[in-house]
Computed example of a mutant assay.
Amino acid sequence: MTMELTEERLALREVVGDLLALTPPEKVWPRLCGEIGAAGLAIPERYGGAGASLLETHIVLEQLGRTLTPTPLLGSAVLAAQALLLTSPAAAERLLPGIADGSQVAALAWAGADGRWDVPAVTASDGTLRGTAHYVLDGDTAGILLVATRDGALYEVDTADPAVTRTAVTTVDLTRRLAVVELRGAAGRRLGPCPLAHLRDIACVALSAEQVGAAARALELTVEYTRTRVQFGQPIGAFQALQHRLADLHILVESARSASYAAASALVAGAPETPALAAVAKVHCSETLQAVAAEMIQLHGGIGITWEHDAHRYFKRAHGAAHLFGHPRDHVTRLSTLLPTPTPGTP
């Protein structure tokens, strides 16, 4: 099972790529929403969206990963929007139109300080929320604040509530906006039970698209550099040892793309193997981006560790993204419970 790259999806990839190449980062989000409708691709038409699917959003996220362009697409149009779709039709009808057209940005508060996403950091008692959520995508600026609680429910919280404190944090990856959200007895509007395990699968699959895009572009930049950097009278890309290393990276990137596309296809199809494929995509795409970014730094030599070169941006994205929605080792552990146990005596 893999994602079919139809003519429409290829055209979408090309249009988004052109827009990102020609638009200053601060103007990308209004254009993505106004001209392409990116925020509403996976939102049904009855809620103001385009009625496409997460496969189309996957295409956009992969292009955003290539350029490391900061937008609220992952946190607002995927994580928060899908949480609403999975939880409450009434809340979806009220909140999703603004998310779909990009006029509203939504944030979902979930994980604790330990970076684990299997148990929410916030508790709820009679509509009162207490706890501190970390790693909240766009949490300090979002106009809509959703909170996942330990009882498996989703709440809406007024961002103006004095019992709510939202603080932007300095991140290693400066292209990813994260915040800490502290709730000290904040009033919450319960929207209903939310399947958090499935929502995390959605998040991991979407993140894997970004990681594949970033890894592919980092490899392209590295290959281009080896063709122009001359040592011992010839481009370093002519040395067989480096060719082998770059070939290995190419295989890694393509296998990561396959894993990401397979997980996205299974997710949209509602296939029973979705949790396992989502975990595989999270692990393999995280490790691939880290490997490619590390080789990018090394093969660029001294320039690769300067602030002026983009290599450090991909390196920081690689390590920041690996921890988002659970560390790869957590998903490896999860895979041990999802995959069938081999029968003794079988290969």
Rank of each mutant, 00 (worst) to 15 (best):
R200V: 13
G192R: 10
P195L: 01
D201L: 01
R227M: 09
P195S: 01
V230L: 07
A206H: 00
M296V: 02
P275H: 06
C285F: 03
G270A: 11
H250V: 06
T228M: 10
L221D: 15
E254L: 11
A247K: 10
A216S: 13
I297H: 12
A209V: 06
S208D: 06
V268W: 14
L191H: 11
A216I: 03
L277R: 15
Q298P: 00
G233A: 10
E273A: 11
R229H: 15
A206G: 14
A271K: 08
I297S: 03
A291H: 09
Q298C: 09
L207I: 00
P275F: 08
V230D: 07
T226E: 02
A266R: 10
A278K: 06
A197L: 06
H300K: 08
A209P: 13
A294S: 14
L246I: 13
L196G: 10
Y261Q: 15
A291T: 14
D248P: 00
C194P: 06
V292Q: 03
Q243K: 13
H284V: 13
A263D: 07
V268Q: 15
P195I: 01
E273S: 12
D201P: 00
E210H: 13
V292R: 04
A264H: 03
P275R: 10
H244Y: 12
A271C: 03
R200W: 05
E295M: 12
V292L: 05
A263L: 05
L246F: 09
L219C: 08
A241P: 00
P235I: 03
S260G: 07
G237I: 06
A197M: 01
A262Y: 00
P235E: 04
Q290A: 12
A293M: 08
Y225K: 13
T222K: 08
S208E: 05
L249R: 08
I202H: 01
T228A: 13
E220R: 13
A294E: 15
P235S: 06
V230K: 04
A215L: 04
A247G: 08
Q240S: 12
Q231T: 08
G301W: 10
P235F: 05
R190Y: 07
